[in-house]
Design a protein around this nucleic acid. Structure first.
Lengths: 299, 299
DNA sequence: TCAATTAATAACTATGTGTTATCAATTAGA
DNA sequence: TCTAATTGATAACACATAGTTATTAATTGA
């Protein structure tokens, strides 16, 4: 039956090729000289290639042996690199992480998280896509994304979620609006104003939550505009199309034309959750979730 | 103790990676399923890389496994190519053959031989160098050339030789010389002519052989010019600097200005020999010597 | 000439690959 | 809902073979 070449043979051959001395090579390999001789002979017969010329008391490489010495050395380092790479993939230190998110998460939470994660995972490539809440759920099931950032109360069976940020809301007003941090008491002061809100379809549960804030203040807002982009809201507010209420974290570090009043005294909170598929085996996901946990503790 | 990865593991892994089914893969490998499972597990633990996700009744590759499947497939074909190449070297079908020769061998014998050899050894590279007889002997001992073509009676110990061509001499005359094939009887007719001969230093034994021809005809030639190149001889003869005697095989298929008369009736012969070092392990040499043997039979 | 050193050979041991028997988990069919 | 079938994993065992020790043959150096 045909004899099988093994890496052992290549390892042994390289040792002898380097030392040109069976006993020394055997010593270095921590095996006996006859064992080594036997394996080399087996390799020669198996490959049908004479590797060494053993004349007198001197061992030297044949032409084919010389060639193999060079080639197999490279060959080995090649294998080491492949395995190293595989190990990085296995450990979630290399590869892609496909992230879905609602627009409002991109203001601060996602960038912060990605920056923190990248510190210890510099080779991980992020694949980012803004998707509405339901879209993320669908694409988690179809494995099109590894993790989603949603504002949803309930997560379907098969997915798991953890809260990333539990936050209140902020009132958005034009910079020169008469109401400010000092004279603001509650929303009832603004019951005659127009409001610009996030589109209900984008996240019904979020919308309902916001509407509850108004209801608690005993009025129904005059919603004159809808959008899904915070920047559009700010622009509209700046130009006196109305006021708005947004999650607190959407307050940019710097923005012209508008000001914010944090609604600390209302009971409503909006929760940004990270969601993932329990069947997802991407090792990066595990690391990323750990980073989310530790990141959350810092806030 | 650190566990050793073997090609067996890679072979087994690829089989499972292709079938995504342990039992089928085991069948294809002619081993039992538990044995295969064990080896794959050993590989996973040894490399520290999870290769397969076994959930439910379905086996699928992890990211790292997917990567390894592609890489290791290439890796194997790489090894096959290396071994193939080594086998060609071993069998003397690939590599260099360093050939030394006296100039007179290049007229016909060497080109014929190389052409014939190349038919079945198209990948062998010839390294050709014109060297005088003694120079070839020296460079055979120092392994600078694999084979030499010399005109020498005696070969030093440690080298071996076989005759390649045993030939007579040809007289070289200008085209319009009064002596021709019809009226030529023997060299005594030309005892008053000038002669151009190969340099004595280039091959003393050859020179002595030629001088014996003259002596048998009871005269000492008037040697007016020396050279080591046949083409120089022909040019000098053409321009009436004198006549010459050269080995018969040096007669070109076509040359202007000179004519040849074969000296069939003299006892002298010149032998071109192939010489090589008995310690030379170049596998191509063995094949080349075989070709010389078979080539000789055809003449 | 004798001691030392080389690699190869022969006979044996023991490691570990591969075996059979079985299990646990899941799925498909009656 | 139960049974039969199919999956891969596990455990105990067998046997092939990698590796061992003892020895030989050949050569070299003192």
């Amino acid at each position: 039956m045909c004899y099988q070449l093994e890496l052992r043979h290549l390892r042994y051959f390289l040792a002898v090729a380097e030392d040109l001395h069976f006993r020394k090579a055997a010593e270095r390999l921590f095996i006996s000289q006859p064992g080594l001789s036997k394996q080399i002979k087996e390799m020669e017969v198996g490959m049908g290639v004479k590797l060494f010329d053993r004349h007198n008391r001197k061992v030297e490489l044949t032409q084919a042996g010389e060639f193999l010495k060079v080639e197999l050395k490279n060959y080995f380092s090649g294998l080491e690199h492949i395995i190293e790479h595989a190990k990085l993939l296995n450990d979630g230190l290399l590869g892609d992480l496909k992230i879905g998110y609602v627009g409002s998460a991109m203001q601060k939470i996602i960038p912060d998280l990605l920056l923190a994660f990248r510190k210890h995972h510099p080779k991980v490539l992020f694949n980012l896509e803004e998707i509405d809440n339901q879209g993320q759920i669908d694409r988690l099931f179809s494995h099109d994304i590894d993790i989603g950032f949603v504002r949803l109360e309930k997560i379907p069976r098969g997915l798991k979620s953890i809260p990333v940020l539990n936050e209140t809301f902020s009132l958005v007003l034009p910079k020169d609006h008469p109401i400010n941090d000092e004279n603001f008491v509650n929303l009832a002061q603004l019951k005659d104003a127009s409001f610009i809100l996030f589109n209900e379809k984008y996240s019904p549960s979020y919308f309902e939550n916001v509407m509850q804030i108004f209801e608690d203040n005993h009025f129904t807002p005059n919603v004159t505009h809808n959008t899904i982009h915070a920047s559009s809201i700010y622009k509209l507010v700046e130009n006196n199309f109305g006021l708005s209420i947004v999650p607190q974290s959407l307050k940019p570090s710097f923005v012209e034309g508008v000001k914010f009043i944090d609604l600390e005294n209302i009971p409503q909170r909006t929760v940004l959750s990270a969601v993932w598929n329990l069947n997802n085996r991407n090792p990066i996901l595990k690391n990323f979730l750990e980073k989310i946990e530790s990141h959350k503790d810092k806030n």
